[in-house]
């Protein structure tokens, strides 16, 4: 069976002051359902760009990304939007919560974008927020939450539509050890119970060591399973 996600010869080049800056070079990767991959590497090694491209937030300069056998970048913008909505959950390094909305609404937003009914979504969002330990912070705006709390809201938001693929960029980076551990446990739990595949970018060797697969990016290249 074909892998769920296949990245083939991915390259990404930015133009910087007229000179090409190669952020990713010939990155290939395949991921099966339920795979949990830790992506480690130094700052600037292209980890975030890799996640953006795999999540179709950015286009590759060369190479292809197949999901479920479909060449993603041959699809239209609105098809990709639906793909992100249905299939991908993002957790960003700096949360990117919508400041005008409460924690609950932020979590509900992907479902609202999908035009799901509000009531069904709300119960799911409450459940998720409770699961990440924020059951009592539902009506709070992001500015009224701590960094860790915001990060947990972001994780809940990424999971609200039960994505097949979770792309997490330093999900525990801004958290203290205990909270980070909690968040990490949530991830492992989800991976086990719902068979969600995930690519988790992390700096923490301790966390990456606990994941079944580890990849290391260096200078834009995948230098093998670390």
């Amino acid at each position: 069976m074909a892998p769920m996600l296949e990245v083939r010869d991915l390259a990404k080049t930015y133009e910087m002051d007229g000179k090409p800056l190669e952020v990713l070079k010939d990155v290939s990767l395949s991921l099966d359902e339920g795979d949990l991959v830790a992506l480690v590497g130094k700052s600037g090694s292209g980890k975030s760009t890799f996640l953006h491209v795999v999540g179709t937030l950015d286009s590759p300069t060369a190479g292809r990304v197949f999901f479920g056998g479909v060449d993603l970048f041959s699809r239209s913008e609105s098809e990709l939007a639906r793909f992100r909505n249905d299939t991908v959950g993002f957790v960003f390094q700096s949360h990117h919560l919508l400041p005008e909305f409460t924690a609950l609404e932020n979590v509900m937003m992907p479902a609202l974008i999908r035009r799901a009914s509000r009531s069904a979504t709300e119960s799911r969002a409450r459940e998720l927020l409770k699961a990440v330990g924020l059951g009592d912070r539902l009506p709070h705006r992001p500015t009224e939450l701590s960094g860790g709390e915001q990060q947990r809201v972001a994780i809940a938001r990424a999971l609200v539509l039960r994505p097949n693929l979770l792309l997490a960029d330093e999900p525990t980076g801004n958290l203290d050890e205990a909270t980070g551990e909690e968040v990490f446990q949530v991830l492992l739990e989800l991976n086990r119970t719902e068979n969600i595949s995930a690519i988790v970018v992390t700096h923490s060797e301790r966390l990456s060591a606990r994941m079944p697969r580890r990849m290391r990016l260096a200078g834009g290249r995948l230098v093998g399973e670390a």
């Binding site: 359902e33 999901f67 479909v70 639906r82 249905d86 479902a111 039960r162």
Partner: peptide, 26 residues
């Protein structure tokens, strides 16, 4: 959560009929 929110990758893009055409193996 209702089942309509849970999707399978193969149907995610609503193009399962085209798998054969663009499958990476072929």
């Amino acid at each position: 959560m209702t089942s309509d929110l849970a999707t399978h990758p193969s149907t995610a893009l609503g193009m399962s009929g085209q798998h054969g055409n663009v499958s990476p193996t072929a």
